[in-house]
Design a protein around this nucleic acid. Structure first.
Lengths: 220, 220
DNA sequence: AGAGTGGTGTTACCGTCGGTAACGGCGCTC
DNA sequence: GAGCGCCGTTACCGACGGTAACACCACTCT
């Protein structure tokens, strides 16, 4: 896959035009794929999805090109609504702390309400070689990070190079919420609001400001 | 793999005893695997690794059980040194900000000096069904997060429930550095020290403290 | 010496996966 | 009613992870 250069497995099937009925069919197939992914996680096979849809593989390939196409279509569908909510939270007329809390809460609420789906969005099977050579963040998270970066750059005064700074922070915050959200989801140690507070506190420098531990053995 | 329950593919081969010479051989095989991973990334196939080692697959399986076993052995080897460095940075007698910067710098330095290897550590091929059903963080990162959590709990006074808080933050910071580090590695926008500063600033509440952007259209 | 025995290594295979070629029909328009 | 275009099929390919079965080599034990 990485060292043999010529034929291997890949190709285009036919990709017929786009009519309304076709979109409908596409949606049906995506529904089936969705069901399978919810049931089996992000590693659902094309065979399984085809079976769930009551058809066979080649049809899927005609509609979506390859596995990645299908997965992307499915991811787009879900991430669209998530992105909308995040954009909304990002634009709310609140003070900054509340806004940040809202964004985090939006994400956590989403992953909480449909874990399998958001696991699929956040941790897609990287076996698909398609795009990024080894993407750090899944496309959906990339989009979230971009949205975040944009909002930061627009709303906060960070001096020169603010765009670069905002982008770094967008990536950082996305990764932070992703990882901790995943952890929180797996062993829910406390309710969501508390988790939101905890993360916002971290961003608000509470780690930096907290007192040393009395019994600490380290210098300083 | 997920829906068919009986025979499929898996099993134990023999797993002979552990002698010094055997460990030596193991190390040789891991060297070969390391070379392949460095060359081809985290998706190196068992065939490729066996070929690089000048032998064939079944030997690898005798030594490591399955692909995941090999990968885990390889990951352990690298993550041991990384973990050592991080532990060291975590215990240094500096003030808190410098300590945090040191830890971040340690991680970024590591991923910078051997990108393929650390991509392999951070983004292992989840096709391996082995352990975590859909682990949020790779084992190595889990270990880092645990180390971090432990250090935070030990060094910082966070009031009641400090352990839980420290764990959440450990996960959060790990994810933050992972994601932003990955981004930084892919399109190095500025030098490492600057990136370290940027992330430490974020943890120090600079996002929270910064002034509003003059032209911002949002409320507040 | 000769017969185990336990390690090394092999070849040849299995089942699954992603993906495709080639074909069979159905319904449509000219 | 002949052609065209689309839905759907069966049957296959090559790569993958993993294994069974066997061959060889060295060393010991009687």
């Amino acid at each position: 896959m990485l060292l043999l250069g010529s034929k291997e497995c890949q190709g285009i099937v036919s990709r017929p035009p786009e009519t309304p009925e076709r979109d409908e069919r596409r949606a049906e197939l995506l529904d089936a794929a969705d069901r399978v992914v919810r049931r089996e996680g992000p590693r659902a096979s094309m065979n399984a999805i085809a079976a769930e849809a009551g058809i066979t593989k080649p049809i899927l390939y005609r509609h979506f090109g390859d596995k990645n196409g299908l997965y992307r279509a499915l991811a787009d569908r879900h991430s669209a609504t998530l992105l909308d909510h995040i954009r909304e939270a990002l634009a709310a007329p609140l003070d900054r702390r509340e806004r940040v809390e809202n964004v985090i809460d939006t994400y956590l609420g989403a992953i909480e309400s449909a874990p399998q789906v958001y696991r699929f969005l956040a941790h897609p099977d990287p076996a698909a070689d398609s795009l990024s050579p080894a993407g750090p963040l899944a496309p959906t998270l990339r989009a979230i990070a971009a949205e975040l970066s944009h909002a930061i750059a627009a709303q906060v005064d960070l001096g020169p190079e603010s765009n670069l700074l905002a982008e770094a922070w967008g990536q950082a915050i996305t990764g932070m919420v992703l990882a901790s959200g995943d952890w929180w989801l797996e062993n829910q140690p406390f309710p969501r609001e508390r988790m939101v507070q905890t993360l916002a506190d971290l961003l608000w420098g509470r780690l930096a400001a907290a007192a040393d531990n009395p019994g600490a053995t380290n210098g300083e």
